[in-house]
Design a protein around this nucleic acid. Structure first.
Length: 619
DNA sequence: GCCGTTTTCGGCCCGACTGTTTTCAGTCG
């Protein structure tokens, strides 16, 4: 797809109407070369992806060759997963710490570290090259097709000469696949469908799109009267920023009826598989949805199992084994098969000697170790939030009036709201110059009285951090604000060093209170800016600048990992929605979910303070 | 091939569904 077309497609599917207009506008003005540069800034070295793919292929090849080496296969797959999801560059790790540094990564031992080193230094990996001679087909791509694993892919190659997805397509069209032993008409049709899905593109859906859909389905199942309990599980329960599929757990004494009900829902496009305890459907919005039914007495074990994530569960099961127990989705069992705990999730953790970890923490990022020591932090909750400090009105690019936004804040039970319309550099968003800001400021002052004793209205602006690190308002205007919220909207593709200096200079200027959507990434659409976050976080600490967790579904910025990183610098946070419409203020839950994934506690978040405390804090 | 409250050797999470089979291998999460 041409870059222009790409940008317009992104704008066309963009969650936020106003952002879409901005993206579309940008796409009209820039040359393809600039856009490519823009989209590719901040991409992690290709080594990570390449090595992960090679390890996965080696795993496939061993699996085909020898069934008994299953643990070796798992070791390669685990290592591939580690490298694929790594936030750092393997090349950089190797540069800094050698193979010893690589071996600190989970699932990477001496053998695999040496293979990584060999590939980075020579561009080859002997083990991979040698094995590949026997299996010269696109295993990495073929196995991405739903229902096709390594062994079947090999048989297709061995018996039909299928090397690529294109070859497979032709074999299916010629009805050659159905004639193979162990395959049949149905398998052939399924593979055809699988290719279609693969080619439609596999990208993960925004939590903000997936979660409301899950909630609709859950509401319908609850309304059917067939279910006892219906709960969301999986990555959306863990509030992961994007989800690959939905998982819904149901307890019922009529599992078959539940499955019939679900497969007949209007949201369902097709049924992938259907059994009495597990059914998978493809939803019209382009997402797969798993429904699992367990008996009521297994509800807790079912939740523990289906919330995941996988790594977390593997570790918890290992703890169960060490204690002489067995844990599965039906319960925690003793040696004789006696139930130790099953109906209540907390009890399962308790019997394992663990403190209950909230779903958002279950990523095997150290929560298991802390849980065993009963030292888990008490995470922030949605109810702790007392106001939203990043909100737009129709004075810039928002859709609703000041009064409508304040009314929404009151409806949410907030005690304050911060109005942050754009500054003049954001001409696309109808940003304000000093004169307009003053007029608006007066308007807010007059309006304040009306809501006195109900919601406090704070005066601010989303002030552009300009190229040189200065803010887009005169000091006089900045002085008159209750606090200053600042963010970057232009010159996003600056080099890392220049960008780092730009932001630090702004922080040292003494006016910035909250750094909004710090990395400027847009999920599935735009890479984060190139910046040395640790240096910036240090400057933020020195100058008392608060980090925002922007709750807008395609931002979620800072994200969970960067929150964890910022916490190490002992920073404060503000969780805001960046609302451009009244109902956008409901996005707060995504910000809270992200904050919990970064292990934030109430004390670290400024908009949990009462109004008076907050004002004192800004002073 | 990795890893260590059971360990430098001997373990490594566990179960459901499908299609093509007459008891199970392959795939998936």
């Amino acid at each position: 797809m041409a870059p222009h077309a790409y940008f317009q497609a992104v704008a066309g599917t963009c969650y936020d109407y106003y952002l879409a207009i901005q993206l579309y506008t940008i796409a009209q003005y820039l040359t393809p070369a600039i856009i490519i540069n823009y989209l590719s800034c901040g991409i992690i070295s290709m080594y990570n992806k390449k090595i992960a793919a090679m390890f996965n292929e080696i795993a496939d090849m061993i699996e085909i060759e020898d069934d008994t080496r299953i643990f070796e296969v798992r070791a390669y797959r685990k290592a591939a997963m580690t490298i694929d999801t790594l936030q750092e560059d393997v090349e950089e790790i190797l540069d800094k710490g050698g193979t010893k540094g690589l071996m600190e990564l989970p699932g990477i031992g001496e053998g695999l570290a040496k293979k990584i080193e060999e590939f980075i230094k020579t561009g080859r990996m002997r083990k991979y090259d040698d094995m590949k001679k026997k299996f010269p087909m696109d295993l990495d791509k073929l196995t991405l097709i739903q229902g096709l694993g390594a062994k079947k892919a090999f048989r297709l190659y061995n018996e039909l000469g299928v090397k690529t997805i294109d070859d497979l397509k032709k074999a299916i069209e010629a009805h050659k696949v159905r004639r193979l032993e162990g395959f049949g008409e149905k398998s052939e049709a399924e593979l055809g469908k699988g290719i279609g899905l693969y080619q439609a593109g596999i990208s993960r859906m925004l939590l903000g799109t997936a979660l409301p859909e899950a909630e609709t389905i859950i509401r319908k199942i609850r309304g059917s009267g067939l279910a006892d309990r219906v709960e969301l599980a999986g990555s959306s329960r863990r509030m992961k920023e994007t989800v690959g599929d939905l998982d819904i757990l149901v307890t019922s004494s009529k599992p078959e009826s539940i499955m019939d009900f679900v497969t007949g829902l209007s949201e369902v496009e097709s049924v992938t598989l259907k059994g009495p305890t597990k059914t998978t459907v493809r939803l019209k919005i382009g997402l797969s949805c798993d429904i699992r039914v367990v008996e009521r007495k297994s509800f807790g074990a079912g939740m523990q199992y289906f919330i995941g994530n996988k790594d977390h569960n593997v570790k918890v099961r290992q703890i169960a084994i060490r204690k002489g127990y067995k844990l599965n989705e039906y319960g925690l069992f003793g040696k004789n098969g006696k139930i130790i705990a099953a109906e209540d999730e907390r009890e399962i953790y308790d019997k394992l000697g663990m403190q209950y970890p909230e779903p958002e923490m279950r990523e095997n990022r150290g929560e298991i170790e802390l849980s065993l020591e009963h030292k888990l932090p008490t995470l922030i909750q949605l109810g702790d939030i007392k106001g939203d400090l990043h909100v737009h009105t129709n004075n810039s690019d928002g859709a609703n009036t000041l009064e409508e936004m304040v009314a929404q804040a009151e409806a949410l039970g907030y005690s304050y709201i911060g109005i942050t319309d754009h500054s003049k550099s954001e001409y696309v968003a109808r940003g304000m110059d000093e004169a307009r800001f003053e007029r608006y400021s007066d308007q807010i002052d007059r309006f304040k009285d009306k809501y006195e004793g109900r919601v406090k209205v704070l005066k601010s602006a989303e002030t552009d951090i300009l190229k040189d690190g200065s803010l887009d308002f005169s000091n006089k205007s900045l002085d008159s604000m209750d606090y200053v919220l600042g963010s970057i909207h232009t010159n996003l593709n600056m080099g890392r060093e220049e960008m780092t200096k730009r932001i630090i200079r702004c922080m040292e200027g003494g006016y910035l209170d909250i750094w909004a959507h710090p990395t400027d990434r847009l999920i599935n659409a735009r890479q984060p800016i190139q910046v040395d976050l640790d240096r910036v976080f240090e400057a933020a600490k020195d100058n008392g600048v608060v980090m925002e967790v922007d709750a807008f579904p395609d931002r979620l910025d800072l994200n969970d990992e960067n929150i964890t990183r910022a916490r190490k610098h002992d920073l404060k946070f503000s969780i805001d929605t960046d609302a451009h419409r009244g109902d956008h203020m409901l996005f707060m839950r995504y910000g809270i979910g992200t904050a919990k994934r970064g292990w934030l506690t109430k004390n670290e978040v400024i908009n949990t303070m009462r109004y008076e405390e907050l004002m004192k804090y800004f002073k």
